[in-house]
């Protein structure tokens, strides 16, 4: 049974005399669920390890020992042979510390099974969470386009995987964002326009573009907006611009807004903190005017517009 005092003494050695073997034992204990009470308090295996490292007498030695131990754990890791909790704790460490061999192990599993294991958990929610974590782990290796991407076989394999994911409805939002972030597709590409129509794509894109990945995506927002404006659906008289509506709704949900500028094009985006930036986009002025016109608003909000017209008629 886990004993806190024994663990505390062991961790004292770890902080003062770290070795790869000691760190390996600690990582295995963590992955076996023997540190659950602490994980509940600090929130993740990454926070747990970061604290042990930060409190080490010699950070450099501790880090080298830890990284060696993590690499050993990865060497013997077979995702399909471990339970989801073990895998999720390890993926947390992989995201945090990006050990080199883990990238190919995850990539191989996803390429083979579209999941970490050939028989994913019977619990749909757990299985989806594991898929997300696996993709986040791969993302940690390529947060931005690498220099010399052409000669990087890992990156090429990752690109292949993203294109495959772009054909699987559950994963399109992630694949779409990543393909654009990594400059693997041009925002004006027809494939981008096709993907934009898939539920969740505009939403995930905007969450990142107006939030944590603004630096990577800000200049692409206008192009995505242009696709939304040029996708008119005349079969739906009430909502002829469903993508524009989704774009606007998501922007508003993120407490930002599209700022129209009378007589000027393109519009800008005003963020929740008041910061404003112009959209960089092709000249789709006519589509924009039409989508935002009185006619469009009238069909989108018939009751309100009828009331406004009634008041107008009464007063004239």
């Amino acid at each position: 049974m886990y004993d806190e005092l024994r663990t505390a003494r062991f961790q004292r050695w770890l902080r003062h005399k770290p070795s790869t073997r000691r760190w390996r034992l600690e990582i295995e204990s963590l992955l076996a669920g023997e540190r659950e009470a602490i994980l509940l308090e600090v929130g993740s295996s990454r926070q747990y390890v970061s604290r042990l490292l930060a409190d080490s007498a010699d950070l450099g030695t501790a880090r080298v020992a830890f990284e060696g131990a993590l690499q050993e754990v990865i060497e013997s890791w077979r995702p399909e042979a471990n339970d989801p909790h073990y895998n999720s704790l390890l993926l947390d460490l992989i995201v945090g510390f990006t050990p080199s061999r883990a990238f190919e192990k995850i990539l191989a599993a996803l390429a083979k099974w579209s999941s970490l294991s050939p028989a994913p958990s019977t619990n749909d929610e757990e299985s989806a969470a594991m898929d997300v974590l696996s993709l986040v782990a791969l993302e940690a290796y390529y947060p931005a386009p690498p220099s010399g991407a052409v000669n990087d076989p890992g990156f090429r394999l990752y690109e292949d995987l993203l294109w495959r994911l772009a054909a699987q409805s559950d994963h399109v939002p992630h694949a779409f964002r990543r393909l654009i972030e990594l400059r693997l597709v041009d925002s004006s590409d027809a494939r981008v326009k096709a993907m934009v129509t898939i539920p969740g794509v505009i939403e995930e894109f905007l969450r990142y573009a107006l939030g944590p990945h603004r630096g990577l995506l800000q200049n692409q927002i206008g192009y995505i907006f242009a696709h939304c404006l040029t996708s008119r659906d005349d079969r739906d008289a009430q909502h002829p611009y469903p993508l524009y509506d989704r774009f606007e709704q998501m922007t508003n949900r993120l407490r930002a807004r599209i700022q129209e500028k009378p007589g000027r094009f393109p519009p800008s985006i005003v963020l929740s903190d008041g910061e404003e930036f112009d959209l960089l986009m092709p000249d789709v002025r006519a589509d924009y005017n039409q989508a935002t016109s009185y006619e469009n608003r009238r069909s989108a909000m018939p009751e309100l517009m009828a009331m406004v017209e009634g008041i107008w008629n009464e007063n004239t």
């Binding site: 995201v95 986040v136 993302e139 940690a140 969450r207 939030g211 944590p212 949900r253 993120l254 407490r255």
Partner: peptide, 16 residues
């Protein structure tokens, strides 16, 4: 989920 997306890593969330 609002400005921090569901699948953002904790490291990125903190940095943001």
């Amino acid at each position: 989920w609002r400005l921090i997306p569901k699948d953002l890593s904790e490291r990125e969330a903190f940095d943001y």
